[in-house]
Simulated assay, not measured.
Amino acid sequence: MNELRMYVEHLFEGKVLTSENIELKEEIYGNLMARYQDYLADGMSEDEALKKTKESVPSIDDVLSPDGELSEDEGSDTRRLDADDAASSAPTQVMDSPSGDSSSDEKARVAGAPVPPMEADVRQAGTSKAPRKKWPVVVGIAAAAVLVLGGLWVAMNMFVEPAVDRVEDTVANVQDITQGNAGGNAGNNAGNPGQTPTFTDPEDQREYEATTALMQEIEDSTADLLQIYAGRATSSEVADLAAELPLGAHRREAGLDDTATGVAYIDYTEVSEDIDGDAIDLALAYNATAIFSVYPDISTVRVTLQEANDSQWDADTYVFERTSLESSFTSVSDGLVTQLNSSLFESTDAWSQVKGYLDRAEFAERVVDRAETN
C-alpha cells in the first residue's frame, strides 16, 4: 500500500463507508495521485511532492456531514451541471417587432427555445394581414425536443451511467482497503473498524471480499519470502514460489519449460469471477516482477489464467518478457530501477518501493495489456 493511499485511508478513518463515500475516497485518491505526478514532473523530489500533495487536502470534514456521509450540498455540487452555466450556454434567439424596429422595448430574447418568425404586415390596398405561418413554430418545437433529448442522452452517458458503474464496481476503485482499516456501510458496521463492510447488493459484497482478499495477499508478500528463493531457478523452486505468491491458491501447475531455455510458466485455474480486473492485473504484474527479481536466469514468464466456470479454451494467456518489464520500471521510476534482480529485495524498504511503482496509476494495467496474447 503506497503512502498516498494510506493517507487517504487515514482521512476517512471513522467515516461511514457508504458507496458515495467510497466513490469520493477514490476521486480524492485519483486527484492526489495526479497532483503528485505533476509535482514530480516539475522536478520536485518525491518527499517534497508527497508533502505538498498531502497539504492540498488536509481534511475531508468540509465535504462530509456530521454523521460521516457525503453532505447533500457537496454531493449535488459535484454530481450535476451548474444550472446557471447551463442557462448561460443555451442559444438565444431574437424576435423582432413587425415594424422592424431594433429598440430594446420591441425585442424579446428567449433563452433555450426557438421563437416564431415575425408576422408580416401586409399593407396592400383592399387586403387584410397575411395569416401567420405555422411551419416555423413546428420546426422550432421539433428542434427544442431534439436539444432536450440530446441533453438527456449526454447526461446519461457522461454522468448517470458512469456513476452507476462506479457503484456496481466499488472494489475496482478501492484496491487498498483491507479488513484492518475498513469501516462500515450504511451504518451496518459503523464504528467497528476491522470488520468487513456490508453492502446491500450481494454482488458488491462478493466483489469487495474477493478483491480485498487478493489485495491483502499482495500486501502480505514481503522481501523475506523472495530472499528464501533467491538463486538459480529450478522447476520445483519456481513451482513452490508460485504457490506462495498472490493467487498461489489457484496455481494448477508451475515450473520451467523443458522445451525453451529461461522460460517459466504458471497456470492458474478456478480464479473467482468476483475479483476485480484491476486487482488481477496488479497480482500478475507483481508475480512476474518477483520471479524475474528472484531468478536472474529467467527471461520469460508465461501465465494462463482460467476463471471459475470457464472452460480451458476461455483461459487468458500472458507472456511477460524481462526486457519489456525492466523498460517499464525504468520509465516509471525515472531510471532508479533499470534491472530486476536481488538488489530490489535486499530490504523491506527497497521492495516496498518496487511495490509502490507497481501501484502507480495504470502501471500494472499497461504491463499486463502488453503481455496479453489473446
Results as ranks from 00 to 15, higher is better:
residue 76 S to Q: 14
residue 57 V to K: 03
residue 54 K to D: 11
residue 114 P to V: 11
residue 109 R to S: 14
residue 73 D to E: 15
residue 74 E to W: 15
residue 48 E to T: 13
residue 51 K to G: 02
residue 59 S to A: 09
residue 79 R to A: 12
residue 110 V to C: 05
residue 77 D to R: 13
residue 72 E to C: 01
residue 68 G to D: 07
residue 95 M to G: 00
residue 48 E to P: 03
residue 65 S to M: 07
residue 78 T to V: 12
residue 88 S to C: 09
residue 79 R to S: 15
residue 65 S to P: 00
residue 123 R to G: 11
residue 83 A to Y: 05
residue 54 K to P: 01
residue 103 S to Y: 12
residue 86 A to T: 08
residue 113 A to K: 08
residue 119 E to Y: 01
residue 67 D to M: 06
residue 117 P to G: 07
residue 61 D to K: 11
residue 120 A to N: 10
residue 55 E to D: 09
residue 69 E to W: 05
residue 49 A to T: 03
residue 74 E to R: 04
residue 113 A to G: 00
residue 64 L to F: 06
residue 62 D to K: 07
residue 108 A to I: 14
residue 51 K to D: 09
residue 116 P to T: 08
residue 84 D to I: 12
residue 55 E to R: 07
residue 122 V to H: 11
residue 83 A to H: 14
residue 103 S to M: 05
residue 119 E to K: 12
residue 56 S to R: 11
residue 81 L to K: 14
residue 110 V to A: 02
residue 52 K to P: 00
residue 81 L to I: 10
residue 105 D to L: 11
residue 112 G to A: 04
residue 100 G to C: 02
residue 114 P to C: 04
residue 62 D to T: 08
residue 50 L to C: 00
residue 61 D to T: 05
residue 97 S to T: 11
residue 81 L to S: 15
residue 71 S to N: 08
residue 103 S to D: 15
residue 123 R to D: 05
residue 115 V to L: 10
residue 85 D to A: 15
residue 57 V to E: 01
residue 92 T to Q: 13
residue 81 L to E: 15
residue 55 E to W: 10
residue 61 D to C: 03
residue 48 E to M: 08
residue 51 K to E: 13
residue 56 S to G: 09
residue 94 V to I: 12
residue 59 S to M: 02
residue 85 D to M: 07
residue 116 P to E: 13
residue 58 P to N: 07
residue 73 D to W: 01
residue 78 T to N: 12
residue 74 E to Y: 15
residue 74 E to M: 05
residue 114 P to T: 14
residue 77 D to W: 13
residue 93 Q to N: 10
residue 104 S to H: 05
residue 48 E to I: 04
residue 58 P to D: 13
residue 79 R to M: 11
residue 90 A to L: 08
residue 59 S to F: 06
residue 96 D to W: 00
residue 112 G to K: 01
residue 84 D to H: 04
residue 77 D to E: 05
residue 63 V to E: 04
residue 102 S to W: 09
residue 71 S to P: 06
residue 77 D to V: 08
residue 90 A to P: 00
residue 72 E to L: 03
residue 97 S to D: 14
residue 92 T to D: 03
residue 54 K to W: 01
residue 93 Q to W: 09
residue 47 D to N: 02
residue 95 M to R: 07
residue 76 S to V: 03
residue 122 V to P: 02
residue 92 T to C: 00
residue 115 V to G: 01
residue 101 D to V: 13
residue 103 S to E: 12
residue 123 R to T: 12
residue 59 S to G: 08
residue 77 D to H: 02
residue 98 P to C: 05
residue 65 S to D: 13
residue 89 S to F: 02
residue 114 P to E: 12
residue 46 E to W: 01
residue 110 V to Y: 09
residue 59 S to Q: 09
residue 104 S to T: 11
residue 53 T to E: 10
residue 75 G to E: 14
residue 101 D to T: 14
residue 101 D to E: 15
residue 73 D to G: 07
residue 69 E to T: 13
residue 122 V to M: 10
residue 82 D to N: 15
residue 88 S to A: 13
residue 101 D to Q: 10
residue 108 A to Y: 07
residue 70 L to P: 00
residue 112 G to L: 00
residue 118 M to I: 07
residue 63 V to Y: 11
residue 46 E to H: 04
residue 65 S to I: 08
residue 85 D to H: 08
residue 119 E to M: 08
residue 84 D to T: 10
residue 54 K to M: 15
residue 66 P to W: 02
residue 65 S to C: 06
residue 95 M to V: 09
residue 68 G to Q: 00
residue 116 P to Q: 11
residue 58 P to V: 06
residue 56 S to C: 09
residue 102 S to H: 08
